[in-house]
Amino acid sequence: VLKALERTRQLDIPDEKTMPVLMKLLEEAGGNWSYIKLDNYTALVDAIYSVED
């Protein structure tokens, strides 16, 4: 979780936006981090930006 938060902080995305999206992605992935961690957490960042749209 810390590495995911560090990555999104680099992009000026607050933890308050990151955590709900991260928890949803983890739930959808059955707790499997490998998809979320791919390409420096690209799936997480993309999911956060899609929620903002």
Rank of each mutant, 00 (worst) to 15 (best):
L5P: 03
E52A: 13
D46E: 15
Y49R: 14
N32T: 07
T18G: 05
V1S: 03
K3R: 12
K3N: 10
V21E: 02
L25T: 01
S50K: 15
G30E: 12
V21A: 08
A4S: 02
G31A: 06
T42P: 00
D53Q: 14
Y41A: 02
N32V: 09
T18N: 01
A4E: 06
E6W: 06
L22D: 00
L5D: 03
L26Q: 02
M23A: 08
G30A: 10
Y35P: 08
G30M: 10
D15K: 02
Y49M: 14
L26H: 00
D12W: 09
G30S: 11
L11Q: 05
K3A: 15
R7I: 14
R7T: 09
L26T: 01
A43S: 07
M19I: 15
L5K: 03
D15L: 04
G31V: 04
K24F: 07
S50V: 10
L5G: 03
R7Y: 15
E16M: 07
V45M: 07
R7Q: 08
L44G: 00
E28W: 09
L25G: 01
L2K: 12
E6N: 08
E28H: 09
V1N: 02
E27A: 14
I13N: 02
R9L: 05
Y41W: 10
G30P: 04
K37A: 15
D15F: 06
A4F: 05
A43Y: 09
L44N: 01
S50G: 14
Q10D: 10
R7L: 07
D53C: 14
A47T: 06
T8Y: 05
S34P: 04
M23F: 09
V45R: 04
E52S: 13
L2N: 11
L22P: 00
K24G: 06
K37M: 15
K24A: 10
A4Q: 02
D53Y: 14
L2Q: 15
V45T: 06
L11A: 06
T18E: 04
L5F: 03
I36W: 03
E6M: 09
S50H: 10
Y35G: 11
E52G: 12
R7H: 09
Y35N: 10
Y41S: 00
L25Q: 02
T42N: 10
D15V: 04
P20E: 13
G30W: 06
Y41H: 01
T8F: 08
P20Q: 09
I48H: 01
L38F: 13
Q10H: 09
E27D: 12
R9F: 05
K17W: 09
L22H: 00
S34E: 15
L22E: 00
L38E: 13
N32Q: 08
R7E: 06
V51S: 15
E27I: 10
V45P: 00
L2T: 12
S50R: 14
T42G: 11
M19N: 02
E16C: 14
V45Y: 02
S34C: 11
E27Q: 13
K17H: 08
V1M: 11
V45S: 01
E27Y: 11
V21S: 03
V21Q: 04
E16P: 05
D15G: 02
L5R: 00
M19W: 11
L38I: 09
D12S: 14
K24H: 08
Y49V: 09
I48K: 00
G31S: 06
V45D: 00
G30K: 13
L25Y: 01
V1I: 15
K17S: 07
E6R: 07
V1A: 07
V45E: 00
M23L: 14
T42C: 08
T8L: 09
L11Y: 06
I48T: 03
L44A: 00
A4M: 02
E6V: 07
G31T: 04
V51Q: 12
Y35H: 12
K24Q: 11
E52F: 12
L25P: 00
D15R: 01
E27L: 10
K24C: 08
T42H: 13
I48S: 01
M23E: 09
Q10K: 10
A29R: 08
Y41V: 02
T42D: 07
Q10R: 08
S34H: 15
P14W: 06
A43Q: 10
R9N: 05
G30N: 14
W33S: 00
L22F: 03
R9H: 04
K3F: 06
L22R: 00
D39T: 05
K24N: 07
E27W: 09
L2H: 12
K3C: 12
E28K: 09
M19F: 10
V1R: 03
V1Q: 05
S34A: 15
D15P: 03
I36E: 02
L38S: 12
A47P: 00
Y41Q: 01
K17C: 11
I36M: 04
S50A: 14
Q10L: 13
D39W: 07
L26W: 02
K24D: 05
V21M: 07
G31P: 02
D39N: 15
A29E: 08
A47V: 04
D39H: 11
L38C: 07
L11K: 03
E16L: 06
Y41I: 05
S34N: 14
R9M: 04
I48E: 03
A47M: 09
V21L: 05
A29P: 02
Y35R: 11
Q10P: 03
L22S: 00
A47Q: 05
P14K: 06
R7V: 13
A4K: 02
A4W: 06
L25F: 05
E6C: 10
T8A: 08
L2V: 11
A47I: 05
G31F: 10
V45C: 03
P20Y: 11
D53S: 12
E6P: 00
A43E: 04
L26F: 05
L2R: 11
V51P: 08
R7D: 05
S34M: 14
